[in-house]
Nucleic acid binder design. Sequence first.
DNA 1: AATAACATGGCAACAATTTATCAAGTCTCA
DNA 2: TGAGACTTGATAAATTGTTGCCATGTTATT
Lengths: 334, 334
Amino acid sequence: MATIYQVSELAGVSLATVSRVMNKNTRVSDKTKQKVLDAMEQLGYKPNSIAQSLASNCTNSVGILVSELHGPFFAQMMAGIESELRAAGKHVIITTGHSEEDKEQEGIEFLISRRCDAIILHVEAVSDDYLIKLSEGSTPVYLMSRYVEQLKDNCISLDNQLGGYLATKSILNQGHTQIAYIAGPQFKADAFNRLEGHKQALTEAGVKFDPALYYIGDFNETGGSKALKHFIDEKLSFTALVCANDEMASGAMKYAREHGYNLPNDLSIVGFDNVIFANYLYPTLTTIDNPVGNMGEMAAKLVLKDVYQNKNLVINRFFEPTLMQRDSSAPLIK
Amino acid sequence: MATIYQVSELAGVSLATVSRVMNKNTRVSDKTKQKVLDAMEQLGYKPNSIAQSLASNCTNSVGILVSELHGPFFAQMMAGIESELRAAGKHVIITTGHSEEDKEQEGIEFLISRRCDAIILHVEAVSDDYLIKLSEGSTPVYLMSRYVEQLKDNCISLDNQLGGYLATKSILNQGHTQIAYIAGPQFKADAFNRLEGHKQALTEAGVKFDPALYYIGDFNETGGSKALKHFIDEKLSFTALVCANDEMASGAMKYAREHGYNLPNDLSIVGFDNVIFANYLYPTLTTIDNPVGNMGEMAAKLVLKDVYQNKNLVINRFFEPTLMQRDSSAPLIK
DNA sequence: AATAACATGGCAACAATTTATCAAGTCTCA
DNA sequence: TGAGACTTGATAAATTGTTGCCATGTTATT
């Protein structure tokens, strides 16, 4: 690979001048500039980004930690972050945390040891205190879908409680009062807040939250199937089922169908996230739209603004979910 | 951040000794080793990976280029690659190519300019010649789901033709002979070979390939809907529909249901890839299992073996798809 | 013609490691 | 006690840039 020295030699200019052309700092005459650019072209010169990083103490890379690489939720988030950063010439280093405290910490340390200019985290197992301490270090930390008061300027969050509220409210509005709820793991802030919203809607409607109609799933399809099996095996009476995400809703739908339920007449089901396939289930899944792709883009913009001094970016740290009424939920038939 | 100098000072040993401890090359007495490790611990020393890369000409990073970040197919692939590399202390830099020639080239150049130790590509738009030329450069190139004869040692591929064959064969075995086919974009090798397999199965069964029952979709859900609409609008007669991937199959299923079809009795549908949600559609989708996660792991192993001298890895460059018979396809009712 | 402004060269310091080499010291064992 | 093996230090070169400084040369302005 060609080095800056070879470029300066071929162009017949000094090393400093080549550097000036590259960094657009000081003025260089158009003639000289062209000579240098031609030489670069001819040699196929690409600056060694490793050496640049060492000298400038800036790696042009942003670390991302997500729970899982697969799954439509994280995919949309990463796509949002990547497209925005890529357009600005930055790149992403992606790691996974698997929602386990030690793996999340390990992933974070890994990203920091790679000297990322900033890290964007979707962490679930690590404590608030750890995050606060972490952000006192030299690497700027940004949080997705998690709100920590002391770090509020660096949080991009969704009003999950509102989402949970909207989901249950839509079901209540359809006349249901016997409503089962499949929650996500309660150590995950998203899952906890969605449940809070569910309770809020119930309270508001004067319906008592029934712990028997509450089950904690794992956010996967199988968790949804298991949960519904549990409710049915317990011979509980309910006409609607609210799920903390679409995967569990689809698992529950499958189980319901296999056990003779006619959807949505026998059971109304609502999901959360509005992942792409929610619209291709049968019946199409009523769910809460989670603008996770936009949130990813916004996180990237926030980094570009804070860390890379990209001034003219308008930042919105809060996103609101909306109801997507489809066919899997319907008015209660008396 | 602490440097190696500070460690050597605190430990009271020379710089060379610290380096020896880190790189486990030469023997160092246990006593000295412990002193050094203690000093590192105390200072919270993390080697600067940038400087390491510069000096050792090895970045411990592998570049990955996929078409899209979202979508279950790529997610599973990336998850496979990442988990394997991560376990070996390497990390991944991920970029997208959007199946467009210039974007793919740009992405590749980007990864090379970051001095990745190797790059794993799932490219679709770029030519074979370009790839051959590329692999003559100093960065080792590996190809996923694309077979180029001259680079065969660096290709991890699926027998897509066999997959296409199996899909159509299963439908033929159920007595269908009027079979519509929704293909993927034919410049994509995967899509092309799946179609070849389809034709092969037809020929073998003495059924003529009917161009009228052939439509090129875009590999997305909407493409599947559009294709089926086309067949129906043309008033063509067919009892089965084979799709080149699961997304299009799910789009077609949705359209069929919305237009009064009773699945699978009125129409048998088969997909390809066996993405997770295929099993949660209604009816559950008969499809061809594509072990893309395993293929990702294998690509990572290949890199570990070739580039990082990890000897004891057994490499399998060819994968075979298998039929997943589910409920969306059924014997023809006469 | 004097002065200022601009363009460029040349040089050196710096970033944090790896790698190599040579010399010196320590220890073991016969 | 002396040979040989092992451990460690000291030092320097190499990696590929960035950055800043001062000197020099070239134009433009008044």
